[in-house]
């Protein structure tokens, strides 16, 4: 009932672990994969290791979290060795590798190294707190098209482009990724934000600014998915503040084929996937509608 085909990947449900959350190693990803999930995404990896920023790297705020981890990762070669144990059996949960690069050539090299162990590549074009990476390249449509195109030339597996909402018009970036050869878009990554401690009178995050995630950004994400759905012809994966089944259904109605869940785990733990799956199942049964029919249904202008 909830099975979907996302760019040729068969997912048992439309729920995907978002990048940056828990995806540091094979065993922990395996544990998440056993939680009623359609696919999992690794933490973002680059050509060489990055230590990440000094703490604090996360701050709880009203309706969400601010984080500035700084893309900590051991580098793509270490990741490739770690994930070589991932079960690539057709029935296993697909593994999406999140990558970043400051140039098209660098992104292509990272993608080529990790592609043999992954079902798809997600290009992080949107990390709001890593200078030279992520949003630094993801806000320029020409850079986005070039990076996606370079990765397209380097790998045969599906490519997802993860977009930032912190641009004037997300559809321009989405169309650039589509022209570059992306098979799907992921919208949205976190929003640039910050918090200040009034006792210490200092920014709370070690990196001063970070990215806001959680329920606070859901309406922004819904709008981004809604606009992208009208602008592109490739599937969209919705992401941003999903905590309940209702939230996930809202994204599907806006035009998402699948959804990513990350910060919601801080509120609900790993049972969040089962909770959302059950709610979606009940909704489809009660409404007598299929998941495929639900995609983008909010775009109808008349009854």
């Amino acid at each position: 009932m909830l099975e979907i085909n996302l760019c040729g990947m068969r997912l048992k449900n439309p729920l995907i672990l978002a990048s940056g959350i828990l995806g540091t190693g094979n065993d922990i990803l395996r544990r998440v994969a056993e939680c009623n999930i359609g696919a999992v995404t690794t933490k973002s990896m680059g050509l060489v290791s990055r230590p990440g920023y000094s703490g604090p790297s996360i701050v709880a705020t009203d309706c969400g979290y601010l984080n500035a981890m700084g893309l900590p990762n051991p580098g793509v070669k270490v990741f490739a060795a770690e994930l070589a144990r991932w079960d690539k059996h057709p029935a296993a949960v697909p593994l999406i590798a999140s990558i970043y690069g400051s140039t098209p050539a660098e992104a292509a090299e990272v993608a080529a190294i990790i592609a043999p162990v992954a079902a798809a590549i997600e290009i992080n074009l949107s990390c709001p707190h890593a200078s030279g990476y992520g949003l630094a390249v993801g806000s320029d449509p020409q850079s986005v098209e070039k990076i996606v195109y370079a990765v397209r030339q380097a790998v045969q597996i599906p490519i997802l482009a993860k977009l930032s909402p912190a641009v004037a018009d997300i559809t321009i970036i989405g169309k650039a990724a589509e022209s570059g050869g992306a098979d799907a878009l992921v919208a949205i990554n976190t929003l640039p934000a910050m918090a200040i401690d009034i006792t210490l009178r200092r920014p709370l995050l070690g990196n001063i600014t970070g990215g806001l995630s959680g329920p606070a950004i859901r309406p922004i994400a819904i709008r981004a998915v809604y606009e992208l759905y009208k602008a592109v012809n490739i599937p969209i994966v919705g992401s941003g503040g999903i905590v309940t089944g209702e939230d996930a259904i809202e994204f599907i109605l806006a035009g998402a084929t699948a959804v990513q869940i990350g910060t919601g785990i801080a509120y609900k733990g790993l049972t969040i996937f089962t909770e959302i799956e059950e709610r979606m199942r009940r909704y489809l049964q009660q409404e007598r509608i299929s998941l495929a029919e639900l995609v983008g249904l909010a775009h109808r202008m008349s009854l």
């Binding site: 995806g23 540091t24 933490k43 703490g55 790297s57 996360i58 785990i265």
Partner: peptide, 17 residues
């Protein structure tokens, strides 16, 4: 540890946080 709340995966040992 980085986040301390089970999100970032920095403190993973096998499959445990």
């Amino acid at each position: 540890m980085r986040c301390g709340i089970g999100l970032c995966g920095s403190c993973v040992k096998r499959a445990l946080l």
